[in-house]
């Protein structure tokens, strides 16, 4: 389990002392402005250089913003398609990612919470926001004990915001994103208050690592029927193209919805790549 580092480009408005910029005046980390001494009576922060520049002369002090903790949440897709086993068991991979998020959040001094959803909100993996470090093990054991039985979709995704705080939080949305576009747009709209990081889990066994030739019947894991597929190079190429189009479409959708750009996880989760991704675009 490797932690990744994340950074936010927005200022939170409260909570406990932590490592993220806020709009709260105080502390000594993020410089805010020079104000007259009488306005903020703190002689410890006297700035002589700034005071000399003022006309008429008056004493200026530096004010700072406080650094607070934020709330990080993992929202996990628990539809049956996450039970897919290719190079990796997608659910196992999601568990790893959730653990990494939890560990990173705890290391950053932030809280961590987890919300799972399939066709209903799944309370068995619900983890309220907490500072406890043991949440990393808790959530892992909760997710490991999940059994997939009936084929289910992810119709409860728009309602996960019910379990999320009203305050802007960092939301990691972990899914394979095979849901209908309308449902996805609806869900993203409900999450506009938050800083959403979509993590798309795909497996090359479903995209490229298919047999070159052969006839097979594929069954939709979410119970959307059965399809006869006669694999041949042309069809393989078409499948690849479908995924490429889907990738572009998702990026476009997330961009429109104002989330961070999606992080695509193919077969394995790389925390360094995740860090890089989080720093490249810190959200706003």
């Amino acid at each position: 389990m490797e932690a990744f580092y994340y950074h936010i480009a927005w200022r939170s408005r409260g909570g406990r002392v932590g490592g993220h910029p806020t709009k709260i005046t105080g502390g000594h980390a993020d410089f805010n402005a020079h104000v007259p001494l009488m306005q903020s009576f703190n002689p410890k922060r006297l700035d002589l250089r700034a005071s000399l520049k003022t006309v008429p002369k008056q004493l200026m002090v530096r004010t700072f913003h406080e650094r607070y903790a934020i709330q990080a949440y993992a929202v996990v897709d628990m539809s049956t398609s996450m039970n897919f086993v290719g190079h990796q068991h997608k659910w196992q991979l999601s568990t790893e990612i959730v653990q990494a998020i939890a560990w990173s959040a705890i290391c950053n001094g932030d809280t961590f919470g987890c919300v799972g959803a399939d066709d209903v909100l799944r309370m068995d993996v619900y983890e309220p926001s907490t500072y406890r470090a043991v949440v990393v093990e808790d959530i892992a054991s909760k997710m490991r004990s999940v059994q997939f039985t009936q084929p289910v979709g992810i119709n409860a995704l728009p309602s996960v915001s019910e379990l999320l705080p009203a305050r802007r939080s960092l939301i990691f949305l972990i899914s394979d994103f095979y849901m209908d576009e309308a449902l996805l747009i609806q869900s993203l709209q409900n999450l506009t208050a938050h800083d959403v990081v979509p993590i798309v889990i795909w497996d090359s066994a479903e995209i490229t690592d298919l047999p070159d030739w052969g006839w097979m019947r594929v069954n939709d894991m979410e119970g959307k029927g059965t399809r006869s597929v006669f694999l041949r190079p042309a069809l393989k190429q078409a499948i690849k193209n479908t995924y490429r189009t889907r990738q572009q479409r998702l990026t476009q959708l997330f961009n429109t919805a104002g989330t961070r750009p999606p992080f695509f996880v193919l077969n394995q989760f790389n925390s360094e790549a995740m860090t890089r991704h989080m720093l490249e675009d810190s959200g706003c």
Binding site: E206, R217, V218, E222
Partner: peptide, 21 residues
Amino acid sequence: AQFQYPSISMMPHDPFCVWVE
């Protein structure tokens, strides 16, 4: 013999496959 696939909506519609079936 059915393979489980996450989402058949990602399988392009192909008349040839339908006819094989």
